[in-house]
Design a protein around this nucleic acid. Structure first.
Length: 811
RNA sequence: GGGCAUGUAGCUCAGCUUGGUUAGAGCGCUUGAUUCACAUUCAAGAGGUCCCUGGUUCGAGCCCAGGCAUGCCCACCA
């Protein structure tokens, strides 16, 4: 077999094909122990970026490790339809190509176009995942919009509606006028903006606002109950000259008001501010819309009706100036403007009739395990979500994100789930617009999985489905179990849920991880996963976020082409800590490419000396071992212990670094060099023994090169019916023990050989070191309080230093 | 305003869980080595007030308190 001088990553596709053909990506049938990761589904619209590559690497590492440990291991891949993101993207393409908008198409025609686009992208994504070496089970691949998952979505919706968790209501929502849709609270971003801040005379008080155009119908003044300045006003009503004539204004005291802000008094704009909306509900005040879904002023704005709200602002202020209502204007007001996270358009909070999930509604918990965790038989979604993490049913790595998670959960408001876009899961709700024989009952929506044929109340066949679709996170919230076949009681579901690990980026902790916890505890009474491992963001060498506009992005495929997938994988694992961002650049990847080549050449050296047609040595016995033999095997044993411990604790970086250090700087630089000097009987056995164990431990990190070496190794040893490395049993511990004392002797002998002579300054340094050790060993408090092992160690060090000095002085 | 993280060699980062070696690695830099598995290599070397101040301790890069710097998250258009 040809063993080229340098490892060529060109082999990778071939190796991947062999794995795929072997069927080992599918979980084994036998073992009772299982391991499962649901792959976070990338948006079906795009190419994978380096952040995905990092996730794939870590997930693949865990899957391969557990597979080699003999567990039935499933890594389930898939893609997400990503409703708003995809629709926006396709709309943009259509517009750029033909100058058309989606409204130039029928809904069905538009959706067909989107689907064809998605199909194409999915193909690209699959190819990229294969390039990374992802050992996921392609036979179980899912898509959030496929038939089974759609069924799961409908099932959960209907159940939640029947349980009183889903309701339709007129509530204040985040509205994006450009997307013409609602957004969830966490889909809103904040952008620092400079603007004008207006102070208006409003009867007895002065109020401040950045949005005069919403203030037409303000009729309530709110002050803090302890605010002495306004105490006399509370409870009274005033006739206040306002934009369109006089209004009757009432003064209310409520402690949500911050006395320090502005004038300490504010007026309520119930329909266009979240706080005001809740206060209006609390005091049963009328809620009237001033701005409509297009961002235009309603009839409530009188002469300004129909104008774009933002554009009308200055005209309204001009009118108020004339009427003498303007106290002053702060021109340099800095505040955070809320914008749509998809398109950057300023958000318009407004009241709208939408579907919501009630996160505070109490439910009976039927699952015994969950009831034990929650500690009571009834709880709200919010309480369940908090309890499962607090009680350790779910462990988040790194644990500092617990705090963030709790804070978010505790402040969670009802989740608006309806979106006014076309691409997504249609809301399984129909309205009777028929004969109105029984007007009252027909007002109840028909919530059903199957399309109803007739109104259950009046029998009319004139039904209309709700035009809206569901928030994309509704379906991805079901991902861990919908992909396993739920609501059917499948074997996969029983075997693999709860899944073992959720590995994802910390920036979607709220969007997705929290939603999965809510949905899974509700629908299954089970947590979706036992462990959440959060990785950081990949940044450029200067610590900047990678972006198209900066042009500082690193395309994983380019890097794979240049350095090989193994090198790319290592660069994303070693030197990274969970939850911390990492900096990535070509030199780093090149460094790991060098290591991959080193591994290749170690194998080349070891195997070039191998005797053909000889069975591979699985066990070796201690026979006339040299100090070096003792040493390398002892070091290997220590390495195995550390690697296992680190992998169990999700410290992938430490494990990888250890193997790197051992193979390059101990095995290659020292032991292999030693064998060149002196050829002995059992050397070859030891070389092969160490190499084999290293290949196994290294495989989850660098699957391609290790598998290729494995193939050549078996060929060289004349073994034809071997199993692929991907399913070799993991190295739990060494089946040989050597003398630690001999190993340490080897290290000492090397050190003595290395530094026989010392310069004058080095001698001086050594002397002062000896002096400091002696002083410490004479210190009574040290001797009294330090643990005996530490004292012993210090004595040893002193002895060693003295010997060294003596040798140096005698030379 | 609330919270979190980070600060160690020129650069990128380990080490902090459990305080105890003369503080480590990779890249870069300096010097040397080429028929020997690998120049995608090897050997040797230079390079550090472990952000600052104080405290606890026989002993602090590590623990505690305060501060400085940087980055991120949440809240907020009164």
């Amino acid at each position: 077999m040809i063993f080229p001088k340098a490892y060529s990553a060109l082999k990778e596709d071939e190796i991947y094909a062999a794995w795929e053909a072997s069927g080992f990506f599918q979980p084994k049938a036998g073992p009772p122990k299982t391991f499962c990761i649901s792959m976070p589904p990338p948006n079906a619209t795009g190419a994978l970026h380096i952040g995905h590559a990092m996730g794939l690497t870590l997930q693949d590492l865990m899957t391969r490790y557990n597979r080699m440990k003999g567990k039935a291991s499933l890594w389930l891949p898939g893609t997400d339809h990503a409703s708003i993101a995809t629709q926006n993207k396709v709309e943009k393409i259509i517009f750029e190509k033909d100058g058309k908008t989606r409204h130039d198409f029928t809904r069905a025609a538009f959706l067909a176009y989107v689907e064809s686009f998605v199909k194409e992208s999915q193909g690209t994504i699959r190819r990229q995942m294969r390039k990374m070496g992802a050992s996921c089970d392609w036979s179980r691949e899912r898509y959030t919009l496929d038939e089974g998952l759609t069924r799961a979505v409908q099932e959960v919706f209907v159940r939640m509606y029947r349980d009183g968790l889903i309701y339709r209501g007129d509530r204040i929502v985040n509205w994006c006028p450009r997307c013409a849709s609602t957004l969830a609270d966490d889909e809103v971003e904040y952008k620092p903006t400079k603007g004008k801040f207006y102070y208006f005379r409003y009867g007895p008080v002065v109020i401040g606002t950045a949005r005069p155009e919403t203030k037409f119908l303000d009729k309530t003044i709110i002050v803090h109950p302890k605010d002495k300045r306004y105490a006399k006003l509370v409870g009274k009503t005033f006739a206040v000259p306002w934009i369109d004539g006089k209004v009757e204004a009432r003064v209310i005291a409520d402690s949500t008001v911050d006395m320090e802000v502005g004038s300490g008094a504010m007026t309520l704009t119930p329909a266009h501010s979240f706080i005001d909306f809740y206060l209006a509900q609390k005091y049963h005040l009328p809620i009237i819309q001033i701005i409509d879904e297009k961002g235009n002023l309603t009839d409530a704005a009188g002469e300004f009706a129909g104008m774009n709200a933002h554009k009308a602002r200055e005209k309204i202020v001009a009118k108020m100036l004339v009427k003498g209502l303007v106290e002053r204007i702060d021109e340099n007001y800095e505040h955070n403007l809320s914008v749509c996270y998809r398109c950057g358009t300023p958000i318009e909070p407004l009241v709208s009739r939408q579907w919501f999930i009630d996160v505070n509604h109490e439910l009976r918990i039927t699952n015994y395990e969950l009831r034990k965790v929650v500690g009571k038989s009834r709880a709200s979604l919010k309480e369940m979500g908090i309890a499962v993490v607090k009680k350790g049913a779910i462990k988040i790595i790194p644990d500092r994100f617990n705090k963030t998670y709790f804070h978010w959960m505790e402040n969670l408001r009802d989740w608006c789930i309806s979106r006014q876009i076309w691409f997504g899961h249609r809301i399984p709700v129909w309205y009777c617009i028929g004969d109105n024989k029984c007007l009252l009952a027909c007002k109840n929506p028909i919530v059903s999985i199957d399309t109803p044929l007739a109104c259950p109340h009046c029998g009319s066949k004139n039904l209309k489905q709700d035009p809206d679709t569901l928030d994309t996170w509704f379906s991805s919230g079901l991902w861990t179990f919908s992909t396993l076949g739920w609501p059917e009681k499948t074997r996969d579901l029983k075997q693999f849920h709860p899944t073992s690990v959720m590995e994802t980026s910390y920036d979607i902790l709220f969007f997705w991880v929290a939603r999965m916890i809510l949905m899974s505890t509700y629908a299954l009474g089970q947590v979706p996963f036992r462990t959440v491992y959060l990785h950081g963001l990949v940044r450029d060498k200067l610590g900047r976020k990678m972006s198209k506009s900066l042009g500082n992005g690193i395309d994983p495929l380019d890097m794979i082409k240049k350095f090989g997938a193994d090198a790319v994988r290592l660069s994303l694992v070693i030197g990274t800590a969970p939850g911390n961002d990492i900096r990535l650049y070509e030199e780093k990847i090149a460094g790991y490419r060098n290591f991959v080549n080193k591994v290749w050449n170690i194998a080349r050296f070891v195997l070039s000396r191998s005797k053909k047609q000889e069975a591979r040595i699985k066990n070796i016995k201690m026979k006339n071992f040299t100090l070096a033999d003792h040493w390398i095997l002892w070091e290997l044993g220590e390495l195995v212990k550390r690697v296992n411990k680190n992998l169990e604790k999700f410290r992938f970086s430490a494990a990888g670094e250890d193997i790197y250090e051992f193979m390059w700087h101990k095995f290659a630089d020292i032991y292999i060099e030693e064998t060149k000097r002196e050829k002995r009987e059992h050397q070859q056995e030891i070389l092969e023994y160490v190499l084999e164990r290293c290949l196994i431990m290294l495989h989850p990190f660098v699957p391609f090169v290790t598998e290729e070496i494995w193939k050549i190794m078996n060929y060289e040893l004349g073994i034809t019916n071997y199993e692929l490395l991907i399913v070799q049993p993991w190295v739990e511990k060494l089946d040989i023990t050597v003398s630690k004392a001999r190993a340490l002797e080897f290290i000492k002998a090397r050190e003595m050989k290395k530094q026989p002579t010392l310069s004058e300054t080095e001698k001086k340094e050594l002397k002062s070191y000896i002096a400091s050790l002696e002083a410490r060993l004479k210190n009574k408090q040290f001797l009294a309080k330090a643990p005996p092992q530490v004292v012993e160690k210090e004595r040893g060090r002193l002895k060693e230093a003295n010997t060294k000095l003596t040798i140096a002085q005698n030379l």
